[in-house]
Design a protein around this nucleic acid. Sequence first.
DNA 1: CAGTGGTCTAGACCACTTC
DNA 2: AAGTGGTCTAGACCACTGC
Lengths: 245, 245
Amino acid sequence: MSIPALPAASFSPLYQQIKTMILASLQAAEWLPGTSIPSEIDLAARYLVSQGTVRKAIDELAAENLLVRRQGKGTFVATHQEDAWQYRFLRLEPDSGEKFQLFNRFLACEQLKPSSQVAELLKLKAGDAVIRIDRIQSFKGKPIVFEEIWLSATRFKGLTLDKLNAWLGPMYAFYESQYATHMVRAEEQIKAVNADQELAGHLELPVGQALLLVDRVAFTYGNKPVEIRHARYNTSQQHYVNQLN
Amino acid sequence: MSIPALPAASFSPLYQQIKTMILASLQAAEWLPGTSIPSEIDLAARYLVSQGTVRKAIDELAAENLLVRRQGKGTFVATHQEDAWQYRFLRLEPDSGEKFQLFNRFLACEQLKPSSQVAELLKLKAGDAVIRIDRIQSFKGKPIVFEEIWLSATRFKGLTLDKLNAWLGPMYAFYESQYATHMVRAEEQIKAVNADQELAGHLELPVGQALLLVDRVAFTYGNKPVEIRHARYNTSQQHYVNQLN
DNA sequence: CAGTGGTCTAGACCACTTC
DNA sequence: AAGTGGTCTAGACCACTGC
């Protein structure tokens, strides 16, 4: 006769709640990329839990590459502005095994109305504008990558071709230092396509040549999509690598 | 005047040693894929450490997908023979988002002398033979994947085209149940290539069409390379997905 | 109900970094 | 020497599964 109990508000362990609070602080920019967060003991006092519980929360955030632990020094907010992390999301590498040194050339940087597809992927509100960037990356003087990049015009207000050309180094370090936007993860979809006339021109190869098409959506804290890339790789002298676990 | 201390035998935490021992048991097939390993308490008694230490060792093995924890039931050796894991290494999916149901057709299964490249990748001894398999995978009647597969002829002794054709389901489940070989991880290198006459025939598309070339080396316990794949995907209606973290 | 993994605590001690 | 993260322990209790 009794009313069956509703499915209990699903159990959430303490360390998950701590994790959420740390995430909130990251998202609120309370601790900035490259800086250290409070020690485990301090956080334990702040959240009124034991050090072990804070530890487990940080462990998971470190496993997700949001934080970086350094024994003896502290725990740091992950940043793309460090040598080891500069090309964390770059999966292309030369067949020869040598080190990649890519040279950037930006062709365009324009504000425009997004296509419906771009607007949807970036979760824009109706009327929001976007910035489209075209760039070519070269290795040893040969153009290897041609890509179009879309960004929200409000988040990246004032971005110009000149600012891009003045920057040396990876895009994601640029976003971080100039627009307080740290990239946390990305999703890629890959296809093979034949080069059309325009691509053939940009990449200096014959029309019809097979190219790797890589579509990427990159996210910042809170799973917010912030950047779209539509890239074509010349894979004659290099390849895309992937680990399956 | 004293001799400087040699770099101390690098510190190895207890849980790492436990992890190594568990790994050894997996490699020795003491516990088989799909079966449960002893409880944490039992293992703690066996290795004379606390439950927490065993726990940390198992945590890492679970993170590497070698073990699977199931609350209330136990900890199990990962297996490819389970629905959820059937296509753990398949990164291709239809653009439409619908479920992939691939149909296998094996064209060949022959024993031969390996090329030097294959021998090297599989770390074969001089004189060891290999088995080469050709297969086509189709979706909705359309051929999507053509691939050549190389296996060590000693590990996969007696493998024939008939046995392959009698098997329904994923290759890795086949290896596991018929040859006691569980795949742990794989490395892929991806390029875009133009279809030649032979590929165009197999995949029913025009010569020159861009295809995804996926080269894979798959490993079993102890980082032992066991299988090589050289696959071409038609990506006109499907794409390769990847997560960057 | 017993047995499993999962959480949380408190405390001791170790390894690494910096001063 | 002090402060940080890293390891290890012992014990209590919770959540889930299956008998």
